[in-house]
Nucleic acid binder design. Sequence first.
DNA 1: CTCTTTGATGTCAGTGACTGTCATCGACCC
DNA 2: GGGTCGATGACAGTCACTGACATCAAAGAG
Lengths: 188, 188
Amino acid sequence: MGRWEPNARERLAEAALELYSERGYEQTTVAEIAKRAGLTERTFFRHYADKREVLFAGSGDLQELFVRSVAGAPEDAAAIDALAFGLDAVGEVFADRRAFARTRHAVITANAELRERELIKLASLSAALADTLRRRGVTEPAASLAAEAAVAVFKIGFERWIEAAEERDMVQLVREALTEFKAVAAGG
Amino acid sequence: MGRWEPNARERLAEAALELYSERGYEQTTVAEIAKRAGLTERTFFRHYADKREVLFAGSGDLQELFVRSVAGAPEDAAAIDALAFGLDAVGEVFADRRAFARTRHAVITANAELRERELIKLASLSAALADTLRRRGVTEPAASLAAEAAVAVFKIGFERWIEAAEERDMVQLVREALTEFKAVAAGG
DNA sequence: CTCTTTGATGTCAGTGACTGTCATCGACCC
DNA sequence: GGGTCGATGACAGTCACTGACATCAAAGAG
């Protein structure tokens, strides 16, 4: 055994979500999170850039998956169809994490600072998707607009999945949102 | 003349934009802004909730104008067409403020915290537009998706207007972005 | 015209997020 | 066995932001 317990980073993330959920984000100090994880405040900031980031550590993986799926769509697929590939892949990955996703989502929506952080993560995702589309030959501003649309569709699908009374298939909900979106854009 | 110089709020906003622009947002302290405006730090926080908000004081007016225009579109206009009314109105209002808009935009894009704040303002705009569409009889999730799309179109049009080498008509650029958007959604 | 009230500001002390710096000490390498 | 490395602790410091109270010109009440 090492000098310290392993998985400091994970322990911090777990402690943070618990405390934010129990007593609210603003009512939790970083010192308290660190203490629950058996560490000091200084160490928290060595693992996470700030008090919010501890909730968004996984967003990079999600973005990578989304981008990879869009990049791997058939070459001749239109922008919106390539994005649909990514939406499917992302929808699948959430399947067994609904309880965690609900807790995390409740914490985030309850606080304006955390909503801000979530929005910039989604903006980063949108930018990465636009970049992927450009590599596929889509020109601007079509690439950026399509990417923003895909993120909006994802958000709607995710929220419906989170809020559904009984467990439903997220992939299906995201597909429904995409269909609705196409109708709106067509003036339906 | 009163006990103090008038327009404290405006002086603070002006001083903040100058300092953020000259030396960067992070390198500027609130005390410095207050001093340049001839006030104290405490007074800054009486006028603006935090160091970022001083750059976003006008966003409420913009949102109100956008919403009012959409609400006033012909009753039988589809969601996307009603939103086009709002886009036109908003495009017009920027006409004589390009220099200011450019400086402000440069400051915001140079800093992550400020980009976060801008994103949440746009999310607020999107929510207000979705609400307006719902009042016009548009159902969910079409209302939210259409509102997000309109904001994306606005962002693209705005950026093109800001970045154009010579001064162009913002209304026209926003309309072009909307046309592009419709093509993308249709799979073009 | 005097008294009172009001509103914008100043002053000051305090909390908590975040950073820079140096010390500690088990693990690992040679 | 000695030296280096990496994760952590300890500690002092800056700055955003808040609460409480004091100040004083202006505006209104009488």
